[in-house]
Each structure stands twice: as structure tokens, then as C-alpha cells.
Design a protein around this nucleic acid. Structure first.
Length: 597
RNA sequence: GCCCUCGUAGCUCAGGGGAUAGAGCACCGGCCUCCGGAGCCGGGUGCGUAGGUUCGAAUCCUACCGGGGGCACCA
């Protein structure tokens, strides 16, 4: 399996004995009943929006068609043989063939007690951990990290966290651009301004300034161009002095990257850096193996792989250029070497590429070529986790008012500054240290969540006011909802621990309590949904729904002033459980959540 | 020209074969001496167009329209 079409990978969750979601429990129970009519028939269990109904099974209608029977009768037969005692308080087969399922209150309560007792809030560990390589972020050495690097970094990081959470072995790969023809120019510029000045320039974080100056010198001087070209040759031949200068550039950039990653709060470290230079020695091997397989065709002096289904503007076959006519290697060679390395040396089961959608064709071709070359073993696969562009309010590429690309550090600093102002005005009682910490969590969280909460394939519109709002599907809203859950314990001077450990009985009687419990039980399935499609926004949608359901509960069900101690305790469990799920959900998205704000 | 992708309420977005398509913002009206008002309730002529598949289509297929992107040696 490869390419960007088709089902990406075996979904990792729920393949073990850990707690199953309600949906899954019902599906399993109904499966037997469906099997007795037609083995393997899909019960098609879905959440229901009918009043008083929790789930519905839609499988009887399709089955009735195949059996040439009446849908209502098939549904009735399923209902008659399904083992739902103790799980459902009401099961109704409608004449159209819907099966409406209402969960028994006590069953909900019992499951919730189990979930609360589980430190993982019901999200299981996979029984067969896979090795998943996640390629993300990939900034360029000696180039400023701009806002465009945000999406790959944030989405990739969230996926890494979730894969790790469910038990996979995750290998983060930061495919830093540290090699290629621009380095001739950059090194010569370093020589011109002196190493000390160069190091200073790079250390203050004005990487674009350095790059731009080099570019200007390159464009202005034939002599500089010649030197640059010669320098590229020296770099590629491993000239020691050139390599020393190159390392200065790389080192300065890596230090800078780590600063930005720390500010952003992502998992990437220096150990995850595997730049293009790493694959340098593998490029000739890639060419050789492709050649041995008879896959290489010379075209206009370049050595190419031609794949079915790809044509250029003229309708002629489009090559994947592995080796350019000048003997240099194209970036396809680098990505092919990368694939070969990840499935060969790293023994990956899955390689994810969190890269913008403009590169879809490139990856599609690379995956297909690597597959044809036999570098992707059976059962393994590569998948392009594509995403759309970040747009400004004008619907064009996100830029500063002056039209420049936005520096990532500036963007993050502004997010924190805006969050600080917001937190300051809304809770002046916070001490300065705490206020700063909260501002950081809220500001950075808002930026991340804005990026994660919409379908990654779409372009998204960057809007400070919307992402930092305390209303709507935002990080601050979720963080605040969690704070409200926690503040009840503080207000009541109640130790949270017993309520968050499953030792306190849960009773769901009021509709709002019941609704909240049912949503809480959907957490594991929300995580699964993300990993089935590499779409973090599905977890965001779930968390937003949870927060909204909690708010309704909070409005209609007094906790500290409940009618009885049992009711109060049960409601405290609901609060604790909501706080846990919100906290964990944000955590696996890579977003921190404060205790107070 | 070919390929990919997106098009859902005024705006920003969920929903991706199932019953009456949802949320936030904005706008209008109402509520609350109550655990954090950063609240709650009510208010809507909306699935780009046209066909097709299906018992059933916002969802799948085809064509078209509109936006974005890609299409030979930059990565």
C-alpha cells in the first residue's frame, strides 16, 4: 500500500482487550444477530440524533434489500435475537428498518466508573505496536522559520503524540534542508563577512537577513557566482575546510530551530534531525539499484523513472528525475533514498509525510517508484499527510502587511502577547509568574488549535481574534472549560483524587448528566477516528462537543448544592472525568492546559 | 491542455450513504440575587449547477461552473 490514495493504514486502536466504546459494544452485540441472517452483514451503528435515542443501527435496510425482505421485518428479527440485556433500556425496530438503541442508565454509569478509574480515560493500547516514521517540520538551514512551517510542525507533532499514546513506536524525522546548491552561495557569504560576524548574524535569529544578503551578492557579482559554484563542488567532494564552514551554518541553525521548537512546545529535538546531507551517500546507491532494476531511462541527458499515469503539459510522459543532466541529484533522489532508508534501515511499517498538498504529485510518484523498486515491503506503506495553505484575512497567502512572509518567532510572540493582555484583563488576580505561564499556554495553544481544528486538507484562514476567543471551537474555550471543572473542587475544598480514580459511584439520572456521560465515553473512539484518517480535527470537534455538553450539565445540575451526597459525589465524578478527558485530549494535540486562568 | 484539491447559514467551520443538515461568530429578543456571566434560552428562505447510482445522496460517480495548487532537471 502506498501513494496518497486508499486507506492509509490499519487503524491502531481497539485491537486489544481494553475498554471498548459504546459504539463498538453495540456493534459487537448486534453483529451476532446480523450474522444469523447474513454472515458478515454490517450493523452500521451510528450515533443517533433522535430524542431519547443514543445510537441507531442502519444495517437492516441494506440487508433487507439483499434478502428481498421488508426492512422493518429484518430489523425486528435482528432486535429479537440481539443480546442487549443490561446494555439497552429500549430497543426499537421501525417500519423503515432503523433500529433505535437507548443505553441503560446503569450501564452508562458503570462504564464511566471504569473510564474514570483508567489513567488513560479508556483509550486502549495497541496489542501490536507498529514502527511509524513521521516526517515533519523540515525547515531549511540558514533560512528563517516562517509561518508556513507551522502546519507541518503542529500537525506532525500531534500525530506523533497520539501514535505514541496508543502504543506505537514513533520515529520523528526532521528532514532539514541542509544540502544543495544554495550552500555554495551561503558559504561564500560566510567567508566574505567573516565567521565571527556570520555566527553573530545567525545567532541573533536573523537568518533571512543572512540568506538575503547572500542572494544579493550572488545576483550582483559574476565572481561571487563562480566562487559559489566552485564551492558547491567542494562541498560535494567533501573538502574539509568547506565542510567546516558548512557545519558552522548548520550548527547555528540547529540551535535556532531548537529555540523555536521550545517556544512552540513540540517534541522535536536535535536528535530528530535527519537532514538531506544524511542521505548523500545513499544517492548513488539509489541510482544504482534503480538502474539494476531496469527502471532508469535517460531523457534529455537526465536519468529518470517513468511511471504510468503521469504526463506533462504537452501530454508527454512525465519523468521522476533521479539524476540531473549535470550529474547532480534531484530531490526525488533524496526522497527515494529516504524511503529506502526508512523501510530498510529503520524497518518502518508506516512512513508518514506531513507535507503541504502542492507536493502530492511528487510524493505519489516517489511512493510508486519506491514500491516498484521493492523498497516498501508487503504490509508496510507510505502516506502523504497533505495539508492546505495558511491564508490571511484577504484569502491570500498569509503575510505581513508589508507583504513579507511572517517570521514564526514573531507570530508566536504576538500570540503570547495577545493572550497575556486577554488573561490580564479577565483575571487580574493571577500573580505575574502564573499569568505569564497561562499566557504562554493560551497563546501557543490557540495557534496550535486553530491549525489542528479544521480539516487539514483545506486551506485555513489565520485570524487572531477568532483563535484567541473564549467562545467557539478554540483552545482558550477548552482550556477554560477544563478550568471550570477543576475550580469546583477548589471552591468546595474537595480533594479531586478520589473522584478521578473510579472509587466513587456514578448515577446518571438527569438528561444533562446522562448526555455528558455518553459523550465522555466517546473519547477513545475520537482518538481512533484521528488515527484512521490522520485528521486531528476530529479530536478537536469531539473536545468542543464535550465542552459544550459539560456546559449544559454545569448549568442545569448543581454540583456542590446537589440534592443528596450521592448525587453530589456522582456529579463531582463527572466534573473530574471531563477535566481528565479535556486535559488528555489537549495533551495529545500538543496543547498545555492550566489549572487556573 | 491534463491531473489533484476545495465549494455547506452573512462570516469561520463541522457533518463524508440513513430519519427534521449542525456549531461558533455577527444580528434581534429574552433569562439569571445560583458552584467562574469568559453564561443560558429563543429567533434561519444554507449543501456551487445539472445529471446518474441507491430503498435512501450534503456524502458515492460523471459533466460543467468557480477558487487554489501541480505538471523536466529549484528543493
Amino acid at each position: 500500500m502506498s501513494g496518497e490514495t486508499g486507506f492509509p493504514f490499519t487503524p491502531p486502536a481497539s485491537d486489544d482487550g481494553a475498554m471498548a466504546g459504546l459504539n463498538q459494544i453495540l456493534a459487537e452485540r448486534l453483529q451476532n444477530a446480523f450474522d444469523s441472517l447474513e454472515p458478515g452483514a454490517d450493523p452500521a451503528v451510528r450515533p443517533s440524533n433522535r430524542p431519547g435515542v443514543d445510537f441507531q443501527s442502519n444495517g437492516a435496510m441494506a440487508l433487507a434489500r439483499r434478502m428481498s425482505a421488508k426492512p422493518g421485518e429484518v430489523a425486528a428479527r435482528v432486535v429479537a435475537s440481539a443480546q442487549l440485556q443490561g446494555i439497552c433500556s429500549a430497543v426499537e425496530a421501525t417500519p423503515q428498518g432503523f433500529i433505535n438503541l437507548t443505553i441503560e442508565d446503569s450501564f452508562i454509569a458503570r462504564l464511566l466508573e471504569e473510564q474514570v478509574s483508567d489513567p488513560r480515560s479508556g483509550v486502549g493500547m495497541v496489542s501490536i505496536p507498529k514502527t511509524v516514521v513521521v516526517d515533519y517540520s523540515s525547515p531549511n538551514v540558514a533560512k528563517e522559520m516562517h509561518a508556513g512551517i507551522l502546519r507541518t510542525t503542529i500537525i506532525g507533532d500531534a500525530l506523533c503524540r497520539m501514535l505514541t499514546f496508543v502504543g506505537h513506536q514513533v520515529i520523528r524525522e526532521n528532514h532539514v534542508g541542509d544540502w544543495g546548491t544554495p550552500f555554495g552561495m551561503l558559504i561564500e557569504h560566510l567567508v566574505d563577512i567573516g565567521e565571527e560576524a556570520g555566527a553573530h548574524e545567525l545567532s541573533v535569529g536573523d537568518l533571512d537577513g543572512f540568506y538575503r544578503q547572500a542572494r544579493v551578492a550572488f545576483d550582483a557579482s559574476d565572481d561571487f557566482q563562480d566562487r559559489s559554484r566552485r564551492r558547491v563542488v567542494m562541498l560535494q567532494s567533501g573538502d574539509p575546510e568547506t565542510m567546516r564552514l558548512w557545519r558552522i551554518l548548520v550548527e547555528a541553525s540547529l540551535v535556532y530551530f531548537e529555540e523555536v521548537y521550545a517556544k512552540l512546545g513540540v517534541l522535536l529535538t536535535r536528535d530528530d534531525v535527519r537532514g538531506e546531507s544524511f542521505y548523500n551517500d545513499l544517492l548513488p546507491v539509489v541510482v544504482e539499484e534503480l538502474d539494476e532494476d531496469g527502471m532508469l531511462v535517460e531523457s534529455d541527458g537526465a536519468r529518470c523513472v517513468f511511471l504510468d499515469g503521469y504526463t506533462n503539459r504537452e501530454g508527454d510522459p512525465l519523468p521522476l528525475i533521479v539524476q540531473k543532466s549535470d550529474g547532480g541529484y534531484g530531490y526525488a533522489a533524496s526522497d527515494l533514498a529516504c524511503l529506502r532508508d526508512r523501510f530498510g534501515r529503520l524497518d518502518a511499517d508506516l512512513a508518514l509525510y506531513v507535507v503541504g498538498s502542492p507536493q502530492a504529485q511528487h510524493f505519489s510518484m516517489c511512493f510508486q517508484a519506491a514500491s516498484a523498486a521493492g523498497w516498501i515491503p508487503d504490509g508496510a506503506g507510505a502516506y502523504h499527510v497533505a495539508f492546505g495553505s495558511v491564508l490571511g484575512a484577504d484569502r491570500k497567502m498569509f503575510r505581513t502587511r508589508a507583504g513579507d512572509t511572517v517570521k514564526l518567532v514573531d507570530l508566536l510572540d504576538e500570540a503570547v502577547a495577545r493572550a497575556r493582555a486577554s488573561v490580564e484583563s479577565k483575571n487580574p488576580a493571577l500573580g505575574p509568574d502564573e499569568r505569564e505561564a497561562v499566557a504562554r499556554m493560551v497563546g501557543i495553544g490557540a495557534v496550535k488549535y486553530a491549525d489542528l481544528s479544521t480539516d487539514r486538507i483545506r486551506d485555513y484562514v489565520f485570524d487572531w481574534d477568532r483563535m484567541l476567543a473564549f467562545e467557539g471551537n478554540t483552545a482558550p474555550y477548552l482550556q477554560y472549560a477544563r478550568v471550570r471543572c477543576l475550580s469546583i473542587f477548589r471552591r468546595g475544598e474537595i480533594d479531586r483524587e478520589p473522584y478521578a480514580s473510579g472509587r466513587v459511584p456514578v448515577v446518571v439520572s438527569r438528561p444533562a448528566e446522562r448526555a455528558l456521560a455518553v459523550v465522555l465515553l466517546g473519547f477513545s473512539e475520537a482518538v481512533e477516528a484521528v488515527l484512521e484518517s490522520w485528521s486531528p480535527h476530529k479530536l478537536c470537534t469531539y473536545l468542543f462537543d464535550l465542552a459544550g455538553t459539560y456546559t449544559t450539565f454545569f448549568e442545569t445540575c448543581p454540583v456542590l448544592q446537589a440534592d443528596s451526597p450521592e448525587e453530589r459525589d456522582s456529579r463531582l465524578v463527572l466534573c473530574a472525568a471531563t477535566a481528565k478527558v479535556l486535559g488528555r485530549g489537549l495533551e495529545v494535540l500538543g496543547i498545555e492546559a492550566p489549572e487556573q486562568m
